[in-house]
Amino acid sequence: MVLLFAEYSDGHFKKAVLEAATYASDLAKSLGTTCAAVSVGAVSDEALKTLSHYGVSKVYKIVDAKLDSFTNTAYAAATAAVAIQTNAKAIIFAQTYNGRAVAPRVAIKIDASAYSGVIQLPDTTNGFASLRSAFSGKGIEAIQAGKEKVVITIKTNSYHITANPVDCTLENFAFSPASTSFEAVAKEIVKASEGISLTEAELVVSAGRGMKGPENWGMIEELASLIGAATACSKPTADMGWRPHHEHVGQTGIQIAPNLYIAIGISGAIQHLAGVSSSKTIVVINKDAEAPFFKIADYGIVGDLFEVVPKIIAAIKKIKGKS
């Protein structure tokens, strides 16, 4: 049996979770077994049933008022309890903030091999042989699990969501968290912004020091909102306070892999690329033809961003106007 950690947040299953669900059910198929999910906390049956579209044939529900807000301790204990009772061979997590906090604990509890950044289905002819992303996207590591069970987190945007409808049953699973599970608890959530969250965004418009100053970001925001993209920035622009810190992408900021990354006035320093080089399509706008970013770009314009961006905005408006 393959078990999915069905993380539910902000009223839905995030794209990363659906990718993990597809991965889990494809893995189950290749192992000749079924795919189940564990859901911790209050989630409607209706929402849980939607997992059946992605090959999940059973959902173990753990509902307890104490589990309504996330703690890695309690959620890991709950997940491990299901994993042990169902004798799951592989526990699959989306590589989200919460998934990454729970996975290592589960691995210790059930004595599993644990690894993150997984980009492909494993070769299971002889145990688990997997490929994972390493060196901030600059390398791929092939690994062999040493234990019988594995706990893995799937790199976001590296596994395609595919429909695989199956019948699905829901079952209540009896579990009550230990009192020691609540030593670190969230008291409040502070929303960063109303915009699209960077880690989830399919499209990202990002800008750097070439913008000259924060007052020029209006056109970046306009471009982003026209195509429904999230906005991001390079480290120095966040450090100088031109942009909020949560927009900083790169090795020391957020790592993202959207379908489209548009880099405007960003040189493409190696530390910046480390956070964005896994993007599927990269567009670079820079006045310096030698800017290193062009080396990994799919499309480029060598030109002054203050001329180029307005032209792009006008062209997009034209397309949007037609459709």
Binding site: Y115, G139, I143, K295, D298, Y299, G300, I301, I319
Partner: peptide
């Protein structure tokens, strides 16, 4: 828990398709 069996490089990108400033619309 796990053993590394080897490393590889990610597949290289194809070359960049360029447009001039005037061709911005073509990029879109």
């Amino acid at each position: 828990g796990v053993q590394t069996s080897g490393y590889a490089y990610p597949s290289a990108k194809g070359s960049c398709v360029y447009f001039s400033t005037e061709e911005s619309e073509n990029l879109v």
